[in-house]
Amino acid sequence: MQISILLVTLLGMAFVAAAFVFVVLNSGPRDEDYGGIAKRGYFIRRWWMIGLCAAGVVVSAWSLVPFPLQASSVESPRIIQAIGRQWSWELASSSVEAGEPVRFRVTSLDVNHGFAIYGPDDQIIAQTQAMPGYYNDLDVTFERAGKYRVLCLEYCGLAHHTMVAEIDVKERR
């Protein structure tokens, strides 16, 4: 997913860059009729604005319905309590089955932490914040068996980068 996000981003950035390169390359010779340039510019700008707004509506609808942070429709996921503290994770269980819906109930005993699950390919698959005084429910269904890791993604002090836990995802029996 992340690589697709990167490619879409680079495409959008290349479009903006192309507009700038075009204008810089066409910055001369001087055209004294700025009124004419402005008129054409405002015409393009109107459609540019309409296009951006239309894209915004489509992308928002596509990405917000259904609301991505809602707990999944699974009736009774397996609940695993995850507690962060400087500088370790305490998971009620570190073993799950592939395909099994799991709800991590995440909190912290001291400062803010970030509960990020990394897949066997070292890519983040999901995350939430671990906050003192709050529980954040993170629904995950591990698709593949393997070693997953939980890293802290909210800076929490000296050994922040060492705050790692492992989740062993086994093949479904």
Binding site: F20, V23, V24, S27, R30, M49, L52, C53, G56, S63
Partner: peptide, 28 residues
């Protein structure tokens, strides 16, 4: 999420676009 998107529009549509219009064929 929605305001993240919409807050980019004034920059892209007004400030950056007007700046480019100003520079285009200006002999800068």
């Amino acid at each position: 999420q929605i305001l993240s998107y919409t807050s980019g529009i004034p920059v892209l549509v007004v400030t950056a676009f007007s700046g480019l219009m100003l520079v285009y064929r200006s002999g800068i």
